[in-house]
């Protein structure tokens, strides 16, 4: 992967509140190459969706990017104005959101929403855009497109709606797609179809994908590399194989241990004791230290940081926690 599509460096997202500034994303660095799928996993509130929204420039005020850089194919995009960002969103970065039931405007035909998006990012006429919309719908696997294009979102099932959302994300052939929990709201049987579809479309086009999910299974099936987030920080970054087979960070190991498997003979699922700290109450040192079975005095004192692949854990970095 020589062509870097997305390059996020030391990204920090803050929410100023009455009780002080909350850091939702704390010093995250990651890259995604052309045609690569980077999985971002973590529990709810780990900052994974927030990272995606920051890249899209869609942070809800008062949330803001406090420091760091975001580059898209070399162009810095975190400093663009809202107006300039409008021609990046949809055109260079496509987005897929969690709930296909609510992502589509209920009062507009799906065809109109597709045509609108296509025409925003190209010079096609209405008729040409409609032809392109039909092609896209066929490509994402919607049957009887000629008839379906004039249907409203409520006339589609959840899986079909998510296919429409994917078609919308692909309208302008973006370099990067940010898929925020694309399968979470769907039936399990549909999840695999959608994941496979997304994977195929992006492979064919060489589109980079940031796949945000809390489902380790989806990551293992789909992603090339994975970033594990915990309390707004990067816990571990590496190839999917390595991270799944040989997790370096105790948190990742805990996540792996809590996935049920039909193949392995397991009597009981492991669980990580406790829960992720609230943003306002992140412990000093490593954010995971109160729940970590191997935590030492150093873990409670200093924040472990890892540059590039590997685990942000003193045990992995220095081999000791004293």
């Amino acid at each position: 992967m020589t062509d870097t599509v997305l390059d996020v460096r030391n990204l920090r997202v803050e929410f100023p509140t009455r009780r002080g500034v909350l850091t939702a994303v704390d010093d995250i660095s990651l890259t995604i190459g052309k045609g690569e799928i980077l999985g971002v996993v973590g529990e709810s509130g780990a900052g994974k969706s927030m990272t995606g929204m920051a890249i899209l420039g869609l942070l809800e005020p008062p949330g803001r990017i406090a420091s760091g850089e975001i580059r898209l194919s070399g162009d810095r995009i975190d400093t663009l104005t809202e107006h300039q960002m409008q021609s990046v969103r949809g055109r260079r970065i496509g987005a897929i959101f969690q709930d296909p039931l609510t992502s589509l405007n209920p009062l507009f035909k799906v065809g109109d929403q597709l045509v609108e998006t296509i025409r925003l990012h190209s010079t096609l006429t209405r008729t040409q855009a409609r032809t392109r919309a039909l092609d896209l719908m066929r490509e994402v696997g919607i049957p009887a497109v000629e008839e379906r294009i004039d249907n409203y979102p409520h006339q589609f099932s959840g899986g079909m709606r998510q296919r429409i959302v994917i078609a919308l994300a692909l309208c302008a052939e973006p370099e990067l797609i940010i898929a925020d929990e694309p399968t979470t709201a769907l039936d399990v049987s549909i999840q695999a179809q959608i994941t496979a579809l997304l994977k195929r479309l992006c492979r064919d086009r060489g589109t980079a994908v940031m796949l945000v999910t809390h489902d380790m299974g989806v990551i293992a099936e789909t992603a090339d590399r994975v970033a594990v987030m915990y309390a707004g920080r990067l816990a571990e970054l590496g190839n999917v194989e390595d991270v799944v087979r040989r997790p370096q960070h105790p948190y990742t190991a805990g996540l792996m241990g809590s996935i049920p498997s039909l193949r392995k003979d397991m009597h009981e699922l492991q669980m990580i004791p406790g829960s992720m700290p609230r943003l306002g109450a992140i412990p000093s040192g490593c954010a995971f230290n109160p729940r970590c079975p191997q935590a030492g005095p150093k873990c409670r004192r200093d924040i472990p940081r890892s540059d590039g692949p590997g685990a942000a854990c003193w045990l992995a970095l220095t081999g000791e926690t004293a």
Partner: peptide, 10 residues
């Protein structure tokens, strides 16, 4: 979501 998604579509 659909307003946010509309913005995400550009």
């Amino acid at each position: 979501d659909y307003v946010k998604f509309a913005r995400a579509r550009g």
